[in-house]
Nucleic acid binder design. Structure first.
Lengths: 188, 188
DNA sequence: CGACACATGTAACACGTTACATGATTTG
DNA sequence: CAAATCATGTAACGTGTTACATGTGTCG
């Protein structure tokens, strides 16, 4: 719902057309997550289908179609801002799942998996820091926050990876390899 | 790709049937992200379609259909473990986007948005800590790692939220409200 | 003129998710 | 017996994502 809600919030700032929405959206998330223009139109169509936005008259001379938020749309945005992002219904964390699986998969070098990820995360952390240094504190205020969000998360990820290595080193290799062919009884 | 890859990795540990896969998957991610059984079957069907798994003969007496990983599937798992989770192609962070949007939307109390989220995150942090305390260090090793991943992330989120408040307090309210109806020139 | 940015839109697909239908088996 | 658990499967939908088609305006 990130894009959907994001575009809707942008439209609450005033009527806009697709190309403009994309520019605004990218101004906030920056080069971080480039947004395919096509997606703006598909999302816009879905928002219109749901009665949250509506086209403002016919396309203008240059063929631009301006959209306006509806009352229902406004209510939706308000409710979005008023409610926290629930941890439970966030997308599954692929990295966490990967490591959990690596732990119980025989023949997988968990240490190596962790190190590979650690290196990659550190690299992207560098890149993020570089981007942050080059940003304008006032003009790119929103983008800066997004950037810093990613930095905080990447740092936490590195810390977690280090923590995992300690955990695994400590572990008496007990829960390492279950029987290759699990019996149905194990489930029951 | 979390579920898809996760199930595939489980099948590398040995042939299994759907219900079993779900039990195993939930044993690793725990009560954190409950997995609807139906999804196992849809995912299994897609894996079979892509030639990564194959049914192992006919359904047995109890109607259970066991699946086995193929060579292509094995290669896929290996490549999954060998490559890091790329930051760029991770799902957009809804919270970051929300705050970025809140910053530039007039009439939105950013402080309130942050506080609401902070409270919710702290609450889920408590719940996660509670779960961690009740987990068995050896039996639930994988789940513990997932749990701790979420804890680290939640902590980072709180820190980030606090950081945001400082940022906003410092800000000279410069990039606050752009003109309500942005001119096309702003995009060009 | 040719390349490029502007601008809209659609078709097709990916994965995730839920609700539902169906039946066998277990257990209180 | 009734309820719960085990077990499979499907239909339908949601968002996100890309590739493509199409056309206009601009600028070197």
């Amino acid at each position: 719902m990130s894009i959907r809600n994001g575009l809707l919030a942008l439209l609450e700032q005033g009527p806009m057309y697709g190309y403009q929405l994309r520019a605004r959206f990218e101004a906030s998330t920056g080069a971080t997550w480039p947004l395919n223009v096509g997606q703006v139109y598909t999302t816009l169509a879905r928002l219109e289908r749901d009665g949250l936005v509506e086209p403002l008259g016919e396309p203008d001379a240059e063929g631009r179609v301006t959209y306006r938020i509806t009352d229902r749309g406004r209510a939706e945005v308000e409710s979005w801002f008023a409610s926290p992002v629930d941890r439970e219904r966030r997308p599954r964390d692929e990295l966490a799942i990967k490591l959990a699986m690596a732990l119980t998969t025989p023949g997988i070098d968990v240490h190596r998996v962790i190190q590979t990820q650690r290196t990659a995360t550190l690299r992207s952390l560098q890149e993020l820091t570089r981007l942050k240094a080059g940003a304008d504190d006032v003009a790119d205020a929103a983008w800066l926050l997004v950037l810093e969000s990613m930095i905080f998360q990447a740092e936490a990820e590195v810390r977690w990876l280090d923590h995992c290595e300690i955990r695994i080193a400590e572990a008496p290799r007990a829960a390492a390899a279950p029987s290759p062919t699990p019996t149905p009884e194990a489930v029951r």
